[in-house]
């Protein structure tokens, strides 16, 4: 199977792209696929923190693009899973450092040794976000059930259909999936939050998964652990389900009902 390039993108900031990129990459690695996750958020590098490898960064994406470092000097192998590699970005303020032909060269080289290349896009619809989605075979649209996030997702879907490499070269279109994150079943029940069906209907793209709002996400980021490694957590399981669907395995949606906290669970406060 040729390597697949998957971008996690959203338009709107802070919806969970980096959390999801880390979780999906780690989930694919857990399933035995050799996976690298690349930080495209030049200037605001954060993937290294979420993956817990911030103290191991020596060379970065921009160094490799500019020929100042070799690929194997910049790639960081995850200590928890041998299939998982992290490719951190630089903190340069020069946003144009991400040159399209340089990115293409690096991606082509990565394709030789990986099954999946996961791209963590920056927010917005500027150069960085366009570069992150340009080479994608698959796009995961990370969306919160909230008006501005849904609207921005719609913009990004339009951009994928017109400005991606696949669109510009008249190839098969980018495969687009919806990943609904920070979903609160109890707020949906109260009529305060858009439902899954609302968002699906408005964006009319297939649903890859629903990740509930969960305390486990903050806990995981505190310790630099992709949330799928916390296998007991609802968010971790929801991400693993999404990864299974990405691999073509049907999975029922879970965690769609408000959590009824038992006495002991509220006592010990584990979500």
């Amino acid at each position: 199977m040729p390597a697949k390039i998957i971008v996690l993108t959203s338009g709107k900031g802070g919806v969970g792209k980096t959390t999801s990129a880390a979780a999906v990459a780690a989930g694919l690695a857990m399933r035995g696929h050799k996976t690298v996750v690349i930080d495209f958020d030049v200037g605001l590098r954060n993937l290294d923190l979420i993956m817990g490898c911030e103290r191991r960064v020596v060379f970065d994406f921009i160094n490799v693009i500019n020929g100042d470092a070799k690929l194997n000097q910049a790639l960081i192998r995850d200590k928890r899973n041998d299939n998982l590699y992290i490719f951190p970005t630089s903190q340069t303020r020069d946003k144009d450092a991400l040159k399209r032909d340089g990115v293409e060269r690096v991606l082509d080289e990565l394709k030789d040794s990986f099954d999946y290349i996961i791209c963590d896009s920056p927010a917005g619809i500027e150069h960085g976000a366009i570069t992150a989605l340009y080479f994608a075979d698959v796009a995961v649209i990370v969306t919160n059930p909230e008006v501005s996030s849904v609207r921005d997702s719609d913009r990004i879907i339009g951009i994928l259909a017109s400005k991606s490499r696949r669109a510009e070269h008249n190839l098969d279109p980018v495969e687009i999936h919806l990943l609904l994150t920070r979903y609160s079943p109890d707020r949906v029940e109260k009529g305060e939050m858009l439902t899954i069906d609302d968002v699906k209907e408005i964006l009319s793209i297939p649903l890859l998964g629903v990740v509930p709002e969960s305390e486990s996400v903050l806990r995981a980021s505190n310790t630099g652990t992709p949330v799928v490694f916390d296998e007991g957590s609802p968010a971790g399981q929801a991400y693993l389900d999404a990864v299974a669907r990405l691999l073509g395995e049907p999975r029922e949606l879970r965690f769609l009902r408000p959590e009824r906290r038992g006495f002991f669970r509220s006592l010990f406060g584990r979500a």
Binding site: V147, V150, R151, D154, R155, V188, G191, L194, D198, I202
Partner: peptide, 23 residues
């Protein structure tokens, strides 16, 4: 207070119909 989510859905449908047409 009732069902603000339904209002959100309807507003989104209208604004996106406009934006898709102009895009």
């Amino acid at each position: 207070r009732r069902n603000t989510a339904a209002i959100a859905r309807d507003r989104l449908k209208i604004v996106l119909a406009h934006e898709r047409a102009s895009a």
